[in-house]
Design a protein around this nucleic acid. Structure first.
Lengths: 302, 302
DNA sequence: CGGTATCCATATAATTATGTATAGCGATGG
DNA sequence: CCATCGCTATACATAATTATATGGATACCG
């Protein structure tokens, strides 16, 4: 290798890959099309491989370029994390903290917790990545994560919150029309909201309650938020966190004695962020907020 | 934020951090001291924080800079992985593959396996990181790893090899002088080679054989290679992989019926490297080589 | 079919970043 | 106590990178 290529080339490479054309990448990066073109040329020269096939309506990535995309993505998220950390003062709670959580937690549970946190620390910005694709804390894709599985890596600081209870729920309107099932067997006569895809959590349920799996579902979705929305819309009976029944009083927890499943919950942060005030404070706020959320889950039985 | 800083600044930042001065960093990168100085200035400007305190004999990193170091390290290893992947042709077995393994495995077990592999594929370069600090495959710090723990992440492709058996060993010379212990209790009268630090594997032994832990060690080291060297030098009786007794015929496996511990072993690779011929071939070679190594571990009893 | 809007490639001009040379500062050693 | 060495900071010339401007190719649409 003569000399290492400029790291800026990786940025240009990734942007072209995402945007699909030199021109669009140039607009994105605030540069010009010939510049990006030269970057790609130089990178291809440096690695001795063709990365894109040029055409008059854009650049088509080669298989090699697609292989390289994850590396470039990592570079981008890491550079982002670098700036996020560097741009916040070490001695004050300010700057941006990026939180990763599942969609349901991120949308139904976290907002009030974050609101209180930001009331207390006006200089604190929060980026919430509400996605079921869990982001990698080791890669610093997020600073703090709420997870339903226990993290394995030693470098991660994890705090177990407890178990979030799940149960069958239905809208009051649905129950008024169709009656409330008293036993698991009664479910057979009801409209069931089911899951579309296999996830770890569905496999767990299948193991604990094989009967549930055999119910014919009237509405299936792989999206947990859509599942919840279906319950709230009165489509039928589905499973959700019992804590979500409380804020919306039209949701009723049914079969509470027959069916119980719990999701272990952890708040996780990279160990090295312990000394960062903004991460520390956010971590603590999430722990406190989720603890009281779990406490509120009790006593919502029908 | 006006505009994102050049990614090259991160490289200069990291090099200054590692080298301790602008001048040394400039030499390392093939640039000049004023250039590196300007990069650091620009980065400090961009993030609005002081990263180094300048002195006449170098640059001293601030706490902030030390916080940022891991991010910069990740950038460097990822850029490296990018080049490694990009510089090898997709259709041929050539280019560099980086293997991570423990010191003992990397030094005592892998070399002959790698030799055979490279005989078969002359264009294949191998980088071996023989370190007990396990490198992160998610971060692409290595392409393939030999691990003694089962990997958790879904994105990793893991192949279980089996269990590597461990046992007490001593040099023939030591046994001629001091006699061979026939029972675990006999160990008390012998010179024992022990471990210095707590590791997962020591905790496991402590659990299975609490008696072993109470033996007074005549020689302690936290380095497994040094431990092995001590056994080979005839210092006393210590624990090592039974497979290591074979190539060196002066090493004798003792108390084989009294003591047995096994280390589960996996070869692990990032799932996305499956399509890369060089990684695929290396992965398979490691699997085959380690399988036959484990097979060779049997039948070496004294 | 002509008009328009993309896109990439190339040549040239402007800007920016880099290297060279030098001065100044502090530590080290005879 | 001065010479030396290594470091950073600055000034200036130069090289490298970038933006601008233009041409050619392709797709889309009325």
């Amino acid at each position: 290798m003569d000399t290492e290529p400029s790291w800026d080339f990786y940025r240009s490479f990734l942007t072209v890959l995402r945007q699909g054309s030199l021109s669009a990448a140039a607009r994105e990066l605030g540069l010009t099309q010939p510049t990006i073109g030269r970057h790609i040329d130089a990178l291809e020269q440096a690695v001795g491989a063709e990365l894109f096939t040029r055409s008059s309506n854009g650049l088509l990535p080669t298989d090699m370029a697609l292989d390289l995309q994850p590396y470039a993505e990592t570079l981008a998220t890491t550079a982002d994390a670098f700036l996020r950390t560097a741009s916040s003062r070490r001695d004050k709670v300010e700057g941006t903290v990026r939180i990763s959580a599942s969609e349901v937690i991120g949308i139904e549970v976290l907002p009030p917790i974050i609101a209180d946190l930001q009331d207390a620390y006006p200089g604190l910005q929060v980026e919430l990545s509400a996605s079921d694709a869990l982001e990698d804390l080791m890669n610093r894709e997020a600073d703090i994560a709420v997870r339903m599985t226990e993290p394995q890596q030693d470098a991660l600081l994890a705090r177990r919150i407890g178990d979030i209870p799940l149960g069958f729920h239905a809208h009051r309107r649905y129950l008024e029309r169709h009656g409330a099932p008293q036993t698991m067997a009664d479910l057979a006569g009801h409209r069931i909201i089911g899951f579309d895809r296999q996830t770890a959590y569905i496999r767990m349920m299948r193991k604990l309650y094989p009967a549930v799996d055999e119910l014919a579902a009237a509405f299936r979705t792989s999206n947990h938020l859509a599942h919840l929305a279906a319950i709230r819309a009165g489509i039928g009976i589905g499973i959700c966190q019992t804590g979500l029944a409380r804020p919306n009083h039209d949701l009723v927890h049914i079969l509470a004695d027959e069916f119980e499943m719990r999701l272990g919950t952890w708040v996780v942060m990279h160990e090295s962020l312990r000394t960062s005030p903004r991460c520390r404070v956010t971590f603590d706020a999430l722990v406190d907020g989720l603890l009281s959320y779990i406490k509120s889950c009790r006593g919502t039985r029908a």
